[in-house]
Amino acid sequence: MKVPLSGIVPPVVTPLLNRDSLDEEGFEKLVEHILAGGVHGLFVLGTTGEAPSLGYNVRSEVVSRACRQVNKRVPVLVGITDTVYSESVALAKKAADCGADAVVLAPPYYFSAGQPELIEYVQHMVEDLPLPLFLYNMPGCTKIHMDPETVRHLAQLDKVAGLKDSSGNMVYFHKCRELLKDNDDFRFLVGPEELLAESVLLGGHGGVCGGANMFPQLYVDLYNAAKSGDLATTRRLHQKVIEISNTVYRVGKHGSSFLKSVKTVLNLMGICNDFVSEPFHRFRTSERDIIQKLLDSLEV
């Protein structure tokens, strides 16, 4: 990336036809839909993209198709998180060959690493990576919290470009910001869209908002308002984001409901298929009907 990344970088949904096939037409329509909203980048193979549940062939196809279609209109970030070191490196090299701009790495899950082990792991990883790296703090999925001091230490590495924080913990955000206040190039991006306005107003650089798959311009407008200090517009648009969070994302009973809701909305909008990787499944008719009513009532 020629300049430090800021703005809205949606974690792109991975449209699927079945367990091991990409919805190619849907993926193309989704990328264009998101870009039309004025976003500042795309992040493929993240949590919202169901990356850990995708076969390596599908992951590779997503990277190549995304980079080819975007064609440098905005930066493309690629998630390379894996339990296997060599697989992360292989996907990073694939991303570089396809023209991606950076990679994103969360701690390897299953066996939990201590902070010294995590530091050493990233130090080794960056030596093998051909692209800049964004750290990804996602303790809800990885079981590992990337301590602020760990972030400070890793931020000193030349290839580490920033942090995507999905902890939902604003105290953590402030601690990291304070530790790196003298590093102007290090980027802070938040995952939970409910915290986008607050984080940008207080010095963050943008958000990786799942809702921007559905309504990209809403999140771009909110980011721009917060960045410019327009508090009235920020409050109004933030309320719309909270409304989506409190309605659309609350359909369903399980932790997978967010993914199901976003994919259902995209399907109802005629953009892509709503197949969800197992062990999850798409919403049934009853939930789809609720989503449709909510979609009809939302003023976005």
Rank of each mutant, 00 (worst) to 15 (best):
P4I: 07
I8V: 15
V9G: 06
P10A: 07
P11C: 14
V13L: 13
P15T: 03
N18Q: 11
R19T: 08
R19A: 13
D23I: 07
E25C: 04
G26H: 03
L30P: 02
E32R: 13
I34M: 05
L35Y: 02
A36S: 15
H40E: 10
G41V: 01
F43R: 03
L45D: 02
G46H: 07
T48N: 15
A51F: 09
P52Y: 07
P52A: 05
P52C: 05
S53I: 02
L54Y: 08
E61A: 11
E61S: 10
V62R: 13
S64L: 13
C67H: 06
V70D: 03
V70K: 02
N71H: 14
V74Q: 08
P75H: 02
L77G: 01
L77I: 10
I80C: 03
I80F: 01
T83G: 11
V84E: 01
Y85S: 08
S86H: 13
A90Q: 12
L91N: 08
A92F: 12
K93Y: 06
K94L: 15
D101S: 15
D101Y: 00
A102T: 00
A106Y: 04
Y109R: 12
F111E: 12
G114N: 12
G114R: 13
I119M: 02
V122C: 08
V122K: 11
D128I: 03
L129S: 10
L133G: 02
L135K: 08
Y136K: 04
N137R: 05
M138T: 08
P139R: 06
T142I: 08
I144N: 11
I144L: 13
H145E: 12
M146E: 01
E149H: 13
H153V: 13
L154N: 04
L157V: 05
D158T: 11
D158K: 14
D158L: 02
V160N: 01
A161I: 00
L163T: 00
N169I: 06
V171A: 14
Y172P: 00
K175C: 05
L180P: 03
L180F: 09
D182R: 08
F188I: 00
L189T: 05
L196Y: 04
L196T: 03
A197Q: 03
E198H: 09
S199A: 15
V200N: 06
V200H: 06
L201A: 10
L202V: 00
G203V: 04
G204S: 06
H205N: 12
G206I: 00
V208A: 04
N213G: 11
Q217N: 12
Y219S: 03
V220K: 10
D230P: 06
T233R: 15
T233S: 14
R235M: 09
R236N: 11
L237N: 02
L237G: 02
H238P: 00
H238W: 01
V241L: 06
E243G: 02
I244N: 06
G252D: 09
K253Q: 12
S256T: 08
F258C: 04
K263L: 10
K263R: 12
L266N: 11
L266C: 07
L268F: 07
L268H: 14
M269N: 12
I271D: 02
I271R: 08
C272M: 04
D274G: 03
F275T: 06
V276P: 00
F283L: 04
E287P: 00
E287Q: 15
D289M: 13
I290M: 12
I291A: 09
K293F: 01
S297A: 13
